[in-house]
């Protein structure tokens, strides 16, 4: 069983501004799997996502995370990305003056270089990009706009998915990518993510809502509450959460 394990989170504790947000998270993700992490606001979902990507504001106080058997926290954020970890940000950052195309190519080339592949020139890169753009239903005008600058909420989320498609990570973590999207945009995003599923990669969907899971069927659903995973199950758990909310789990956790 362990040979397919891509990510192993063991008793992870993390703080932000001195406040403990993660209080012992355990999670195992195997290649080929899609995990959904659900939970009420403030349960630590985004913290978990950001800690895995290496956000500088969070401090890991205990536990460890193995990514492909290696210590994830021993790698700076850029190395995690080059090794195949990708976080789709809940609040993507705008960068003025830098076009999306330049940004994407810089990222692709940083990863290619790390893998010992030749870097792509502007023309080759654009050719490779055209196909990816089509998948998310974008025209190339988005490439000449500055990164996320003046983008609507939905455009920013789509831009994260474009990066996901272009960078082709082994482990994709989507932090509430579905929130703020209208039904059509959600469908496009979900279908893109679904198309990218392969036996050798995995996805963690951090979400508040059931609806994205109607497009991407998760293998495992976890409920994060109070900084811990309080329940895990199949996709029927997501449906149960949709119907009953989170309160019953909180009570269960308190009783336990």
């Amino acid at each position: 069983m362990t040979e397919n394990v891509l990510l192993q989170v063991q008793d992870l504790h993390a703080t932000v501004e001195g406040r403990e947000v993660l209080r012992g998270v355990d999670l195992t993700v195997r290649a080929g799997e899609v995990h959904a992490i659900m939970g009420p606001n403030g349960s630590g979902k985004s913290t978990l996502a950001q800690v895995l990507a290496g956000h500088p504001a969070y401090t890991v106080t205990a536990g460890r995370v193995l990514y492909e058997g290696k210590d994830l926290f021993g790698m700076p954020p850029e190395e995690r990305a080059r090794e195949g970890v990708f976080l789709a940000f809940q609040y993507p950052v705008a960068i003025r003056g830098i076009t999306n195309a330049y940004f994407l190519r810089s990222a692709v080339n940083a990863i290619r270089k790390h893998r010992g592949q030749e870097e792509l020139g502007p023309v080759e890169f654009m050719d490779a990009l055209e196909a990816k753009l089509e998948v998310i239903g974008w025209d190339s005008s988005y490439l000449t706009r500055p990164v996320n600058d003046g983008f609507s909420g939905g455009e920013k989320k789509r831009n994260e998915i474009l990066q996901l498609a272009v960078l082709d990570p082994k482990l994709a973590i989507l932090d509430e990518t579905d929130s703020g999207l209208d039904i059509d945009a959600l469908k496009t995003v979900a279908q893109t993510v679904d198309k990218l599923r392969r036996p050798d990669n995995a996805t963690i969907l951090v979400t508040h809502y059931y609806r994205i899971l109607t497009h991407i069927a998760p293998d495992v659903v976890h409920v994060l509450a109070g900084g811990r995973i309080v329940k895990s199950g199949g996709k029927e758990l997501a449906l149960e959460l949709e119907e009953k909310g989170y309160d019953w789990l909180r009570e269960e956790a308190t009783v336990a």
Binding site: G54, P56, P76, E78, A81, I95, A107, A110, Q163
Partner: peptide, 10 residues
Amino acid sequence: YYLRSRGLSP
């Protein structure tokens, strides 16, 4: 951080 999370060195 955003750029580093995409594989770019500091």
